[in-house]
């Protein structure tokens, strides 16, 4: 479905906006402790930036920045980070996801905060990659249906 969209204003604005969107996404992930937001919302925003790129510049541009294999790897790696953090707590003698047992050199509450951050990062990565993956899968061309409204 997604082909290039030839319009100077849209293209320029997109080019300008995307970095801001991505930074905002990262901010949302990182700042989830103090304000609304967190891994999931940030991930969606990051994913949306790629989707915007795909809509305006076409698929190839996205593939250049986020190769397909990397995207699929991201899908798995993110959630693996989450579960891995939990499993790490097991290794250090705590229960699953008991961040207080993580070997960070800070107070227990801070350890938990750091654990939350690592987990949120994982969520963010997965959600971003999944959003892109679903969008791409849904808009992939097929032999029988060409991208046109019927």
């Amino acid at each position: 479905m997604i082909t290039k969209y030839e319009d100077v204003i849209v293209k320029t604005m997109t080019r300008l906006l995307i970095p801001f969107i991505q930074i905002y996404g990262l901010y949302v992930i990182a700042h989830g402790h103090e304000s609304p937001g967190g891994g999931f919302q940030g991930g969606v925003i990051l994913g949306a930036s790629f989707i915007l790129l795909a809509v305006v510049y076409g698929m190839d541009e996205v593939k250049k920045r986020l190769p397909e294999k990397l995207m699929i790897a991201f899908v798995a790696i993110g959630v693996f980070i989450y579960a891995g953090t939990g499993a790490l707590c097991l290794l250090f003698g705590g229960n699953f996801l008991d961040y207080s047992k993580l070997p960070f050199p800070v107070a227990i509450a801070e350890r938990r905060a750091l654990g939350i951050l690592s987990v949120e990062t994982g969520v963010g990565i997965t959600v971003m990659a999944v959003m892109v993956a679903i969008m791409l899968a849904l808009s992939s061309k097929s032999k029988r249906t060409r991208g046109e409204f019927k």
Partner: peptide
């Protein structure tokens, strides 16, 4: 307990972190 002022985040990622893993 978690040094996280946003109660939603602390519940999401810590108290009920296992749910969130399921969600992910």
């Amino acid at each position: 307990e978690t040094a996280t002022p946003n109660a939603v985040t602390s519940v999401v990622a810590d108290y009920r972190g296992y749910d969130t893993m399921g969600e992910t």
